[in-house]
Design a protein around this nucleic acid. Structure first.
Lengths: 149, 149
DNA sequence: TTAAATAGTACTAAACTAGTCCCCAATGTT
DNA sequence: AACATTGGGGACTAGTTTAGTACTATTTAA
């Protein structure tokens, strides 16, 4: 289904939440409670995002995390890259190796074009966009955790 | 890295190869030899693609497989859908459930837009496009199997 | 000094993927 | 009619990846 890992999904949820009040410093506990994602998992993700330079962290009591840039300057593509590595649908799009077969596999370059298109689509959406509320039919309140069985 | 499974990649290689001569009926052995993908795997994929209606099969001696439609009418999106299910980056994009959290997760609709964009990108490329040879820098002959480690 | 936080690392269970194999069904060929 | 060829449908296994948790060290406010 061409899907992102759960952790990447969580990361976007967390970052989108933090983008609502991007100046405020939040600790792992607060983020966990607000998003419904288990604390150890939130903690792990926040560390990871901080290490990647997406968040700035403050250690010690009253510490926490805040976005390192404005929400409109953080693209979904960059979030995905941080979590999953470069956006590339196929192996040969990422490696330096040139993919050729005996029969002549010339599709590599085409894959590159496809990847570029997908990348552009993801690059064009930022956290600021994610914060905007778009109404959906039938708003039923379900904790996010329940989605993951 | 937002990647497709190896089998999906193989499927595009196989279908692209078959698209070069879309009328000709090929058996699993021929496809295996031409693509460098192991026979049991090719066989499994051909069965799967036939079952999905992407290929038409002929049983018995002199049997084999051929594309069920013209290459220009088979999109990469449809190939991915057959192999991996609907193209949806996140869980909430695929389920009927509406994803809402206590703090208000309104990003679902935004994900839907992203998915649609990605889907359009993949829908716009067909097998006919994949057959077109685009030159790449440094053409080195490497069997496709070696790409996977 | 103490409590509150993050930093870093290691570990485990579960799920998924890739690949192979086997036997059955269909259809030409001799 | 017998046989060879080829797809059809499962079942199975090893390996890898993912998700989630736990534990210890480090930093800093009060």
């Amino acid at each position: 289904m061409l899907k992102l890992s759960k952790l990447t999904d969580y990361a976007t949820v967390i970052l989108s939440f933090m983008a609502k009040d991007s100046r405020h410093v939040l600790n792992a506990m607060e983020v966990s409670e607000a998003t419904g994602i288990a604390l150890p998992t939130v903690s792990k993700l926040l560390k990871l995002l901080a290490k990647a330079g997406m968040l700035v962290s403050t250690r010690g009591a009253k510490g926490g995390y805040a976005l390192s840039r404005k929400p409109e300057n953080i693209s979904i593509a960059s979030v995905i890259s941080v979590m999953e590595g470069p956006i590339a649908l196929t192996e040969c799009s990422i490696s330096q190796q040139v993919c050729e077969q005996a029969a002549g596999c010339h599709i590599g370059a085409n894959w590159n074009l496809i990847n570029k298109t997908v990348h552009n689509a993801l690059e064009s959406v930022t956290l600021a966009d994610m914060v905007i509320t778009v109404p959906r039919p039938e708003e039923i309140l379900v904790p996010v955790a329940s989605l993951y069985r």
